[in-house]
């Protein structure tokens, strides 16, 4: 019998983010480097899977980091930030 499984892509990983007092991301620290957020292209809220034991409540930010690298990050209600791979 052979057993195989699917491998996830775009799985989110924890990331350090410096946020402004209003909650918007100001800088993201990736690969040990501090990258400023050049622009916030869009932001939205996702509340999903509330019918399960692991409900999702995320504040998404579609940002552009210097020097022009796009990134999708979100903040959970706990305050922890994540970056989609």
């Amino acid at each position: 019998m052979g057993t195989r499984s699917l491998r996830g892509i775009a799985d989110p990983g924890p990331v350090r983010v410096i946020a402004s007092p209003g909650g918007a991301p100001h800088a993201v620290i990736t690969d040990g480097r501090r990258r400023l957020v050049v622009a916030v292209r869009d932001s939205w809220r996702v509340q999903d899977r509330w019918w399960t034991d692991a409900p999702v409540d995320r504040s998404y930010f579609d940002v552009v980091l210097e020097p022009g690298r796009p990134a999708l990050i979100y903040r959970e209600t706990s305050g922890q930030w994540f970056l989609h791979g």
Binding site: R4, L6, R7, G8, I9, A10, D11, P12, V46, D48, R49, V56, L72, H84
Partner: peptide
Amino acid sequence: LVEIEPWSRLPERRWALGP
């Protein structure tokens, strides 16, 4: 690339890699 739930609002649930 394998479509899982392309309409999902959670990016990690839209696609996956398979053989």
